[in-house]
Simulated assay, not measured.
Amino acid sequence: MSVSRCWAVVPAAGVGSRMQAERPKQYLPLHGRYLMDHTLETLLGYKRFEQLVVVLSEQDPYWCDSEFAGDARIIRAPGGSERCYSVLNGLRALQDLAAADDWVAVHDVARPCLRHSDLDALFGALQNTAACGAILASPTRDTMKRGVLHADGTVAIDHTVERTQLWHALTPQVFRYQELTQALEYCLAHQLEVTDEASALEQRQRSALLVEGRADNLKVTRPEDLALAGLYLTPGK
């Protein structure tokens, strides 16, 4: 199955409360730029993408100061209360542009360390396959424990989980435009607020490929993650 045209959707409407910062994490400084500008530069520099949809809060006061606020390659869409609503809004912004079988890559705005080599691997895996899509993922390397929450708030080990087939889901996650749109619409119609796009396809009994990506494609969630991303993005690294 040949690769059709490709689009990217970047949900960026979250507030990032776990960062405990005075502004959403995508607008925190990283090497003298907004964190999100590192992410957008990587995506805009990837030649497969026709255009990017950036999904933003309608009350976002910071976007106008982004390096890419006036970039004609970017379409702005309104954010939703949860990621799944934002992604669906981003997909709907492409309804007059994308064909049903075009690929759409959904990427976390807070993953600024994405490399083009991982995008190549992701789209390469989709050539000549009947799979509905593919996601970047990282095999679990640590011993995994399932915990049990006690009444006093402490968490104890319940049992050790076999890690052989466990993967950390990363982004981008790539699916056909129409199928992803329909899967998200189905989930939201059934009050299923899925946390990633692959989960939406799973609700439709569709299974995506796991494509091993670089472990440094981290998601900035806590303050220490920002420092680590800064290290990975140091010029010359």
Rank of each mutant, 00 (worst) to 15 (best):
S4H: 07
W7T: 00
A12K: 02
A12S: 10
G16P: 01
G16S: 15
S17L: 14
S17P: 08
M19F: 11
E22S: 08
P24C: 10
P24Q: 15
P24D: 14
Q26P: 06
L28T: 06
L28R: 03
P29W: 04
Y34T: 04
D37C: 02
T42H: 11
T42N: 09
T42W: 03
L43C: 03
Y46V: 08
Y46L: 10
K47H: 13
E50K: 00
E58L: 08
C64K: 14
D65Q: 07
E67A: 09
D71S: 08
A72V: 13
R73G: 01
I74L: 07
I74W: 02
R76C: 05
A77N: 03
G79Y: 07
G79T: 02
G79H: 06
E82F: 06
Y85K: 05
Y85G: 08
S86C: 13
L88S: 04
A93R: 05
A93L: 03
D96M: 00
D102R: 00
W103T: 00
V104K: 01
D108P: 00
R111M: 14
R111Y: 12
R111C: 08
P112H: 02
L114G: 03
L119F: 04
D120T: 05
F123N: 01
F123E: 10
Q127P: 03
T129P: 03
S138G: 04
D142N: 15
D142S: 12
D142K: 12
M144K: 10
G147I: 09
G147T: 10
V148Y: 09
A151W: 15
A151I: 14
V155Y: 02
A156K: 04
D158M: 08
T160V: 04
T160D: 13
T164W: 15
Q165I: 14
L166F: 14
L170K: 06
P172V: 07
Q178G: 10
Q178R: 12
E179G: 09
T181R: 14
T181I: 12
L184D: 05
L184F: 13
L184W: 02
H190Q: 12
L192E: 15
V194Q: 06
E197G: 00
E197Q: 09
S199C: 05
A200P: 07
Q203V: 11
Q203D: 10
Q205P: 02
S207K: 12
A208C: 13
N217K: 07
K219N: 11
E224Q: 08
D225L: 07
A229D: 07
G230H: 07
Y232W: 15
L233H: 12
T234W: 15
P235M: 12
